[in-house]
Structures are given as structure tokens and as C-alpha cells.
Design a protein around this nucleic acid. Sequence first.
DNA 1: ATAGTTTTCCTTCCTTGTCAACAAAATAAT
DNA 2: ATTATTTTGTTGACAAGGAAGGAAAACTAT
Lengths: 161, 161
Amino acid sequence: MNKEELVIAGFRDLFNKLVWLNKSKMEDSLKGYKSSEVHCIEYIGRNEDSNGTKLVESFYMTSGAISKMTKKLIKKGIIESYQKPDNKKEIYFRLTPQGKAIYEIHEELHKEFQERDKAVFEQVTEEQFDSMLSFVEKYSRHLDAEIKKLGADIKSESRDS
Amino acid sequence: MNKEELVIAGFRDLFNKLVWLNKSKMEDSLKGYKSSEVHCIEYIGRNEDSNGTKLVESFYMTSGAISKMTKKLIKKGIIESYQKPDNKKEIYFRLTPQGKAIYEIHEELHKEFQERDKAVFEQVTEEQFDSMLSFVEKYSRHLDAEIKKLGADIKSESRDS
DNA sequence: ATAGTTTTCCTTCCTTGTCAACAAAATAAT
DNA sequence: ATTATTTTGTTGACAAGGAAGGAAAACTAT
């Protein structure tokens, strides 16, 4: 394995561990709420006027899945939907008081996780942070371009048929 | 968001993109095979004497899921199982010729992805690689320790009841 | 104005993964 | 040697997400 593969594989494994561990802790503290639901609550709590499309884009999930999840959260009384007077198509979401309570607990947990991992991050220098961030940014932009290309390909294909 | 969160969130988003994009390309080239199946083929192809437990550990999936996936792959004729003369419990897997063919195509695709992203990685210096790798390693070890702790917690809990 | 196109959201069916209970082999304890 | 515990793998009920197709609102040509 070259270094390129090592970095990718290393980060993938790291993320798997992190997600698994935090998920366990989360579902322990927030009993009754799944980590995917909490993730959704987090997003809606942080972003004013979230709607289905925004959730689809940031979660890399299909619109069908988002539709079902939001419906379930509404049924549970965790979020509520609303519309704007000049737009009858888009449906926005906001947290209910119950949702806000969960959001707060989640924030606390988040701080707990940071505290847990402090020892690791304390050893990272500013230069290392900046270097990693610049790498992430460059790679991310590159992939955006590739995804855009793929989108164009799909369109040109469908034009043939 | 502090730098710590930026790095984590940045990598998470980067990975989501990478997985989504490669998955699309993969299911385009290897029509009929799901990316999860290919992932499994890749692991079995690379690791001599893979068994269920090894797959569970490296995929962070439940043993039920692994059991079903391997059964499906056997049914499709992509992998085959075998046992060792001195152990009637453990079941090992290896690729069939058909599985090996898929493995080869996957390897080709992998090279294609590397070619696609070459421009990004060429800009990364040796020092940056090493710095990222050391970060991944440290963090990973830290999480291993935390996961171990959690395992101990679970055990002590069940001892109470 | 209105006819086509795109965006946004929903529904149904299917696949995949989790959970929990279980069985059998291997290992440990007495 | 016998019994208890752990490891390994399986199964069935259930939940989550994807795919495909559809409907209504919004946009964009004429």
C-alpha cells in the first residue's frame, strides 16, 4: 500500500471506529432516539429554514429516505413543518420544544466526546491542523468537480435515449 | 466551530463524497454487483483464511449481516467456504474463479480512482503524509482504548443483573 | 397565456442491516 | 470427567435506506 492508500484506509477505519463508538454512547444517553434521528435533529437545530432538499444534499441520502425520516420525527413530535406564504412547494422544518431538549442533550454529549479525545488533539500543532484542512478542502473541491462531471454524463446519456 | 470540529466534519463530508462517487462508478462498471459485495470480495481476496469474525471486526457490522452476505455471495458463486480439519466451528472463505475475476476488475477501478485523484495527492508533501498518518494512528489507538473501556463497562453491567 | 421543463416532495416495493434468541463447537473451571 | 462459559455462526422479525415512479408547484420558454 502506498501512502495515498494508507491515508484513505486509515481515515476510513478511524471514522468507522468513531461513528461506532459515539453511536453506542449516544443511544445509551438518548435512549429511544436513533443516531440517525439525532443527526437530523442536530442539522435542523443548527440550520435555519432547513428543508428536504438541504437534508438530502448534506446527508448524501435519497429524498425518499429523508421524506420518511422527517415524517417519523414529526409523528414523534420532535420536529414540525411549516411553509412560507409565498411558496406552496417547499416544506421547512424546525425543532419543537421536545426536539430542542434533545438537541441540548446532544450538544452536551458532543462536548463530552471532545473532552474524551482532548488528549489526542492537544498534540496536534496549528501547522498540522492547517495542513489537514487544506488537504480536505482541495480534495473536496476536486471531488465536487468530478461529481459535477458525472452529473453531466448522466444528463448526456439520457439525452441519447 | 473550532479547528478540531472542522477537521472531523471536513473529513466526514469528504468521505461521504468519495464513497458516493466511487460507488456510482463502481456499480456502473461492475453491473449486477453491489458495492458492499465488492467490498467483501476485496477483503476475502486480500486476506488468506478470512472467516466471519474477521469480516465482522473489519466491517464494523453485526455477525448476522455478515452471515447473510456471505451466504448470498456463496449462492451467487462468487465465494466458497471451507473448513480446517482440526476445527469444526470456524468457517473460512475464499474466492471462486468468478470472484477472482470481479476482484481483478475492482483492482483496475481502484487504479482508475487513483489516477483520477492524482492531481490532489501530488500536491501533498511527504511531511504532510507522515503528519496525517501519525494523527490517524494516535487517534485510532485512543479510540481502541475507549472501545475497550466500553466493552468492560458492558460486561460489568451485565454482571450486576 | 400556456406548454414544456425542472424542482421538490411523497409513496410503494425491495434490499440490506440490526437485534435477539438460539445452537453447536471450543475452551475454561472445578 | 463434567459442567459452565465463551466463541462462532445462523435464523426470523423488524427497521432503515435505496430505486423508481408519480404528482404538484415553480420556473422558463415562447
